[in-house]
Design a binder for these strands. Sequence first.
DNA 1: ACCCGGTTCTTGACACATCATCTATCGCGA
DNA 2: TCGCGATAGATGATGTGTCAAGAACCGGGT
Lengths: 155, 155
Amino acid sequence: MNDETQWLSPREQHSWRAFIRLNQKLTARLGSELQTQSKLSGPDFAILVALTDDSAGRLRFQELAKAIDFEQSRLSHQIARMIKRGLVAREECAEDGRGAFVTITDQGRETIEAAAPKHVAAVRRLVLDAIPPEDLDALGDIAARIIRHLDETAP
Amino acid sequence: MNDETQWLSPREQHSWRAFIRLNQKLTARLGSELQTQSKLSGPDFAILVALTDDSAGRLRFQELAKAIDFEQSRLSHQIARMIKRGLVAREECAEDGRGAFVTITDQGRETIEAAAPKHVAAVRRLVLDAIPPEDLDALGDIAARIIRHLDETAP
DNA sequence: ACCCGGTTCTTGACACATCATCTATCGCGA
DNA sequence: TCGCGATAGATGATGTGTCAAGAACCGGGT
């Protein structure tokens, strides 16, 4: 490592730190509201939403992992915990002896249906209410651009 | 909870999901590069930076916690782990028998000085290179606005 | 029919985050 | 001076994330 590092300019640093800080605060805040209002963690919520999005409420581990961008192992642990709590169930796969489905249970469905409105309300109250729609669009566009860049840079 | 929830419009949802997804991907990616290149976690890095920013390289737990927005307990655990690895040290406080300082060690200083350039390079390569400066400014402004809103909404 | 590389998911070890609880000390007011 | 609430920080339990290794199965080539 030489000493010609291109450090961040004050302006860059200011924006960058704000962005990082926002990520942290927001994840913490949304997670905490989810937890106290609905007894769900962020990952719990993401998984239940993904399962609900599927018409059968039932996905292979791979598909689910891809849908929410979880690593295989992380998902495996997460599902194991959720099974204990009765939110989802495991179902063997006839066509492929290795694989398995994750199914949402009735309890899981009730839970997510109760949680979703509260979560949306929190998102609105904490974020959307703070910025005008055109800023949200701008945010979304920039985020999408960076995501594409990340995916290209090293999958 | 009634059934008049104001769900997100498709446009809102699109932007919101992109933003959340970016947060996850980015934290994962930056953390992973930090880990493999410098054997540091995100929290490790944040703490070492904060300590380096201080002229004495030495902060009270409270000050440090505030600087990086960590809860007290989280910081306590984190510092305990970092002490084991020799990155920081604990120093009793003469004026206040309850308190203590966290000091950066020589090894900690070497580590962060080696890590910082690589991290900045990663930030540049993964993010800044993907968007023009004016978009970064816009991002920073929006982030700052939401942060202010979050802090006002419930400190 | 069998081998063998690749796929699918699991598991164990360890780092990290959060919550509730605990200990020690501080400093103020009776 | 004593008592007592408030502050500083530590600790243990539990849930979450990552990595490395493993077990079971698939499918194609021989």
